[in-house]
Design a protein around this nucleic acid. Structure first.
Length: 851
RNA sequence: GCCCGCGUGGUGGAAUGGUAGACACAGGGGACUUAAAAUCCCUAGGCCGGAAGGCCGUGCCGGUUCGAGUCCGGCCGCGGGCACCA
């Protein structure tokens, strides 16, 4: 007897699909289109299980939609610019370009055997000049449309390597290579004006009903619209030009609890005071460390009393000290605040540290004014009693008090209500080689001039070295030299390249016309946009998705996308990670030594190395090379075939949650697929005669499977769809139906399994005489008549606890059901004559008797 | 520090506010086999009980409800993001 042998059959079917051109996307006005996209990978060189899971999910959707009659676009490309290629060049020599394209070739070769229904003819990498040249063209259009500008911004500066560091290269405030203490330094940088769209990006979140609620919430919080009061303190003892100090607060109702004013170390007033060595020393202290919000906000809060005073706007005789504080951000509001320690924990800690007064403005309803042990910060919607209020009722909600305070300020002319956003403009300048060159020229006469479109793409020079830190473009002998596109004089190229988020902000649009000599083509963008289903990691919930939403708007403004595509992703799904246990032993110094799962023998009791050494097991975490808790998909494919890998990553865990890779789970997946193959093999050879009752029962089970599996796939509940397929397999195997009925059932099973395990599905389909390729067969429909159940089993609860159950006709009226329930033997026994207070009958669901 | 999630048997998980534990893994028992593998069948949250059945049970504490894994408030633990990782 032959066996399920994926290594033989999988390549055969992949060839058959290629030959049939099954996955080539075609603009077909006669059919509805469906665009499914998974976030494209960074070409690290090896695919991992996370990729397998991500692309299998997309593939299930793409294959199911194709079967359901849609014209499907399912492309793949490479997010190919970025730091790892430069790091590799620094560590191992070679060129980022060779490294990157080599990795792409390797990864493509690893992805092909997965049998994904991808239109590979549309593949591109963002480091292709054909791609980034079009990006440069759009940059120029956006510059002309006023969406791009230059300003100063702070970067992480490594004073030893004399180079700019990424946040991840700053470890504990030190440069990762040099170990030098990192400083914050200002540079002139290029920015996209995403803030022009703050309001729109926020409001439009409401239209994204097929996005996860949590992603919309995270984006809304990131954009951070706030209504607050802006007003100017009158200063006492400040340098000329600083007679006023503008502050912004979202809690103007706490004005009477103010105990100090604080400004950012980067505030103009702080700069004006820097001639004082003590101030200069303090400001320098504040600029130590990296630029990340995490680092700034978790740093110890320190302050410096400038000696300057400000007059309280409600009582000019009341003066507050002005401090410089390291936790005030220049980027938000006006870079200056007033501190109200009683109602802000950060201010409370600061006031406690420096002995500043702490006075409550409001107290919980019914409480009295008393010294506070920590800041009192109730929700704004909660009613509180104002003991130091100045506007509105004595007892009101925070929201009411804020509104009253703003109108008080406006009426009395000391401030005005303003709306601010937390969202900052998008800094895209990177002082690095392996990125899209910013296509502008610095001319001594004309200033900053966009490169002429005729000269695009501005390509990266190949003759560069990475033996010295810093940007090779900056020290390239000839690349920087050019002529001004405006006046023809000698000029210099911009040496900054673009943030790689720019590359990934429009690749979805490029896939609609990947070879075009313009960024997009109207007819193609019109037909294929929007992405109907986008799939990727939750780690991209904010930045990538927000930048893409902005870029689509900017592309629309500059004529590269239709109006309907300003929200480019109709539906979003964020999948979980693939995790694995971590195995480690200790070296002579007690330092951990990690081991690959394939080098470890796992038993119920624990784990050992092959030589018997005991191994510590750490609970599952995201697969990572450094912890060696990785399973190479290539090994799994070699051992079990692609379908087993696909089936396993889709089963068990819900797709939005993490899935733990276990060897036993993979084996179980393989066993199940082997079982399906075996059943098909047996049924194909069987001549069991028809049996009316059994055949009908199997047809009903088949209809139910079609209904439930289809629902599972459509709802992104792949694990449930797979559970139903397990059930269906059990039913078919145990069924006493005739061979003809079983063949019908198994052909449908092949169709239902096709999105998940396409190779096995083709095999089963062919064995049972299916016509053509199952990949191209129309999706099965469940006969509604076979789905109808005529009776229903209802649990009976007494006081909320299940005590009995009854089976009644499906549409029996509630009053009738009630009678039967109360007459039930077990119910009577339980009630023991107690009077029934209330009886709740939820049709088709439950009966609850309250006594 | 701030924003957002998640927490259910030995394990992965299922459950429109309505029978908690579907489906699967690991386990236990059995069939087949000279034996093993493979396969097939049965069993399976915990405690008590011979059984019928009962009590307890969805991280912890409290609340809303006829009814809470699900909704609300507070806590604990784990994870994601924090604007130059992609």
């Amino acid at each position: 007897m032959s066996r399920y042998e994926p290594s033989q059959t999988e390549p055969k079917w992949q060839e058959a699909w290629d030959k049939a051109g099954a996955f080539t996307a075609r603009r077909d006005p006669a059919r509805p289109k469906y665009y499914v996209l998974e976030m494209f990978p960074y070409p690290s060189g090896r695919i991992h299980m996370g990729h397998v899971r991500n692309y299998t999910m997309g593939d299930v959707v793409a294959r199911q939609k194709a079967a359901a009659g849609y014209s499907v676009l399912h492309p793949m490309g490479w997010d190919a610019f970025g730091m790892p290629a430069e790091n590799a060049a620094m560590e191992r020599g070679g060129h980022p370009k060779d490294w990157t394209y080599g990795n792409i070739a390797d990864m493509r070769a690893q992805m092909r055997p997965l049998g994904l229904s991808i239109d590979w003819s549309r593949e591109f990498a963002t480091c292709d000049p054909e791609y980034y040249g079009q990006q440069q063209a759009m940059f120029i259009d956006m510059l002309e449309a006023g969406l791009v500008y230059r300003k100063n911004a702070v970067v992480n500066w490594d004073p030893v390597d004399m180079t700019v560091l990424a946040n991840e290269q700053v470890i504990d405030g030190k440069g990762w290579r040099s170990g030098a203490a990192v400083e914050r330094r200002e540079l002139t940088q290029w920015f996209f004006k995403i803030s022009d769209y703050s309001e729109d990006l926020l409001n439009a979140l409401d239209t994204l009903t097929d996005w996860p609620e949590k992603v919309r919430l995270m984006q809304a919080n990131w954009i951070g619209k706030s209504r607050g009061l802006q007003f100017a303190f009158e200063t006492v003892g400040a340098p000329t030009g600083f007679e006023k100090l503008e502050v912004y607060t979202t809690r103007p109702d706490t004005l009477m609890g103010a105990s100090f004013a604080a400004i950012s170390a980067d505030h103009p007033l702080a700069k004006a005071l820097e001639h004082d060595p003590a101030v200069a020393a303090f400001v320098t202290e504040c600029r130590k460390g990296g630029t990340s919000a995490e680092e700034i906000e978790t740093a110890e809060k320190i302050g410096y009393d400038t000696g300057i005073r400000v007059k309280h706007p409600l009582d000019p005789s009341w003066e507050l000290p002005v401090w410089i504080a390291n936790f005030i951000l220049m980027d938000y509001g006006t870079g200056a605040i007033f501190g109200c320690p009683a109602h802000d924990q950060r201010d409370f800690d600061f006031a406690t540290k420096y002995g500043l007064p702490i006075k409550a403005v409001f107290v919980a309803e019914g409480e009295r004014d008393a010294p506070l042990a920590e800041a009192f910060v109730p929700m704004k919607s909660e009613r509180v009693t104002y003991v130091r209020g100045f506007a509105g009722s004595e007892t009101q909600t925070g929201e009411e008090a804020i509104a009253a305070a703003i109108s008080h300020a406006e009426t009395n002319g000391y401030g005005k209500g303003v709306t601010k956003f937390r969202l900052r403009d998008w800094g895209i300048s990177r002082q690095r080689y392996w990125g899209c060159p910013i296509p502008v020229v610095h001319c001594p006469a004309c200033g900053v001039v966009p490169e002429s479109k005729a000269n695009l793409p501005v390509t990266l020079p190949d003759d560069v070295t990475f033996d010295v830190p810093g940007n090779p473009l900056d020290r390239h002998p000839t690349w920087r030299d050019c002529t001004c596109p405006k006046c023809g004089a000698k000029a210099r190229r911009e040496t900054d390249t673009m943030d790689t988020f720019v590359d990934s902000s429009w690749y979805y649009a490029r896939f609609t016309a990947p070879r075009a000599t313009t960024p997009t083509v109207a007819e193609d963008a019109d037909y294929w946009m929007n992405v109907d289903q986008y799939i990727g990691g939750i780690e991209h919930a904010i930045l990538h998705l927000l930048y893409s939403r902005f870029f689509a708007r900017a592309m629309q403004k500059t004529g590269h996308l239709p109006q309907k595509a300003v929200e480019p992703f109709n539906a979003l799904f964020t999948q979980g990670m693939v995790t694995h246990e971590i195995y480690l032993t200790r070296d002579g110094n007690g330092r951990p030594v990690y081991h690959l799962p394939e080098d470890v023998i796992r038993t119920d009791a624990g784990a050992t190395l092959k030589d018997g050494t005991a191994v510590e097991i750490i609970p599952s975490a995201k697969m990572s090379k450094s912890k060696k808790n990785v399973v190479d998909p290539m090994n799994i494919i070699a051992q079990f075939g692609a379908d087993t890998a696909r089936w396993f990553v889709m089963s068990d865990s819900p797709p939005e949650r993490d899935v733990e890779w276990t060897a036993s789970g993979a084996e179980a997946a393989f066993k199940h697929l082997s079982r399906v193959w075996r059943i098909a093999d047996e049924v194909a050879k069987s001549d069991t005669p028809a049996n009316a009752a059994e055949d009908t029962a199997l047809a009903r089970a088949t209809a139910k499977a079609v209904d439930e599996v289809t629902k599972g796939i459509e709802d992104f509940a792949f694990n449930k769809a797979i559970a139903k397929l397990y059930e269906f397999t059990n039913t078919v195997q145990r069924s006493q139906a005739g061979a003809g009925a079983k063949r019908d059932a198994l052909r449908v099973m092949a169709q239902l399994m096709q999105p998940m395990t396409p190779h096995l599905a083709e095999e089963v389909w062919a064995m049972l005489g299916g016509t053509g390729l199952v990949t191209q067969a129309p999706w099965p429909k469940a006969d509604p008549a076979l789905l109808v159940e005529d009776s229903v089993t209802l649990p009976i609860q007494i006081n909320g606890k299940r005590r009995a159950e009854i089976t009644v006709p499906k549409d029996m009226p509630a009053t009738e059901v009630e009678k039967i329930a109360l007459a039930d033997e077990a119910v009577v026994k339980f009630l023991a004559g107690q009077p029934v207070k209330k009886i709740i009958v939820v049709p088709g669901r439950i009966i609850n008797v309250v006594v």
